Computed example of a mutant assay.
Amino acid sequence: MTRTRANARAWAVVSVIALFGTYVAVILAYGLAGRADAPDDQRPAPNGALVYLDVDAVSGETFSLETRVAVYPGADLLNPEGDLRDDLTVQVSPAASADSLTFARGTRVGSQPVSLYADGDIRQWPFDTYQTSDVQVLAFTGTSGARVAVPVQVAVTDSVTSWAVHARQADSGPGQALDIHVARTGPTIGFGIAMCVVLLILPICTLLVSILTLRGRKQFLPPIVTWFAVMLFAVLPLRNLFPGSPPIGSWVDYTVVLWVVVGLATSLALYVAAWWRQAP
């Protein structure tokens, strides 16, 4: 008996240490993933333009990356007051929205949203990735009849949480071509997997209770029927906590959510059968 209690205490201590270690690991992973990047000190060429593509949203359902394009003209393109000497047009392609940004002569350049096409499959959540290839950024001064191309520097940044954005130089073209790859961060994937584990624990607990009760090893308690119903209603809110809200029909629904619901419903049916057996 003493040895059994010692083993139980040892398992309890190990469980507490493992839980605390997991908690610390999750906090550290989140903190390291949220560290600020090094400050950007890029400057446009005097006769060119510096264009920032800032990814601020990822839409797997519409296969697009939402970006905000910010343009910084060089000194030769500005007058002493800091306004444009001539019309400036920036083209971004392939774009799902208007790909041409025009800034009028005598005004200051701002930022505008642009949607880029992206290849990916949200049904692979949380391991879905998206890529847009050969993103071309061109800049011109002057009107459409007498446009002059200007050198362009392109920098890709990200203001989107839970995603890691990587850009690399693509095959050279008339402008600066880039391939942009977007994937969920490690902590985000871990959070999604943890939510799946939480869902799987629910039917394991309810099946244990219902089977033991049906076999007569535990007493039937009517309030537990309400507990089963609460577990069933908890599935959808827990699923809605999945990062990125994957659409119904994703692989996680067929491999986790569906079987959680089946397990809970089976538990409820078994407990009702136990009530039928033990009822006077």
Rank of each mutant, 00 (worst) to 15 (best):
T2W: 02
T2C: 00
V13T: 12
V13A: 13
V13W: 08
V14Y: 05
V16F: 11
T22Q: 07
V24A: 13
A36C: 00
A36G: 10
P44C: 06
N47C: 00
G48F: 07
L50N: 08
V51S: 04
L53S: 05
V55C: 06
D56G: 05
E66W: 08
T67Q: 03
R68G: 00
V71G: 04
Y72Q: 15
A75S: 15
A75D: 13
L77P: 09
L77A: 08
L77S: 05
P80N: 10
G82Q: 09
L84I: 04
R85H: 03
D86K: 13
D86Y: 08
D87T: 12
P94G: 03
A95S: 15
A95H: 09
A95D: 07
D99F: 06
T102L: 10
R105F: 00
R105D: 05
G106V: 04
G110Q: 10
S111V: 02
S111K: 10
S111T: 11
V114Q: 01
Y117A: 10
D119F: 11
D128C: 08
T129L: 00
T132C: 04
D134W: 05
V135I: 15
L138Y: 06
L138F: 06
A139Y: 06
F140S: 01
R147W: 01
R147P: 01
A155W: 01
A155P: 01
D158R: 10
S159L: 03
V165R: 03
S172M: 05
L178N: 01
D179R: 08
D179I: 09
G186P: 02
I193Q: 08
M195R: 10
C196D: 13
V198A: 15
I201A: 14
I201R: 05
I204L: 15
C205Q: 14
T206P: 00
L208S: 14
L208V: 12
I211Q: 09
G216D: 07
P222L: 11
W227I: 10
V230P: 06
V235N: 03
L236Q: 12
P237L: 01
L238Y: 02
P243Y: 13
P243A: 09
P243Q: 05
P243S: 08
P246N: 07
I248D: 07
I248E: 06
V252A: 10
D253C: 04
T255F: 11
V257I: 15
S267P: 09
A274M: 07
R277A: 09
R277H: 09
